[in-house]
Amino acid sequence: MQPREIINTIEFNLIIKRLAFELIENHTDFENTVLIGLQSKGVFLAKRLHQVLTEINPDLNLDIGFLDITFFRDDFRRTDKPLVANETNIDFMVEGKKVILIDDVLFTGRTIRSGLDAMLAFGRPSLVELLVFVDRRYKRHLPIQPTYVGKVVDSITSEKVNVKWQEVEGEDKVLMYSSEN
């Protein structure tokens, strides 16, 4: 079966713009706010949001960092897949900052749990918000909820949601794969 397109390119970019405006609504000039994208695909979303926010306000001075959660995962030695680390690049202090944690898909919540742990190694933020592009609701293993959501999707566990990025796959869209794929 062909994967189903659940967000097309036009919707994709509208959602990013909407998320950017929602952030402006809550953070106004982003003084004391930082963006942290989770490796690997949350990084693309963080960069894209940063780009849109800078287009809206060219004077914006907003720090952006990338966080790898590999060493904080709870499934080390529990999967057959080896856990290979990605780069972490946070060249600012998180202490006392308002952090917007960014990932592409929220599913079980375990990645975000690891991300929260990993982030605390850089200091104690004053506030943490979660922004996700796709929220697969009713699938949480942990009590974690997003502050900003691109699109809510109902899915079953065996399905897979995959966000495609212009930078990597050449096209912005979100696909849902059923269990047979």
Binding site: F71, F72, A121
Partner: peptide, 23 residues
């Protein structure tokens, strides 16, 4: 190569304010 690319990330870890991971 795998040991080196993993060590790159750990070198980053040991230069953080909290130099420890729970793995």
């Amino acid at each position: 190569d795998l040991i080196f690319s993993t060590a790159d990330e750990f070198k980053d870890v040991i230069n953080r304010p909290i130099k420890k991971v729970p793995t």
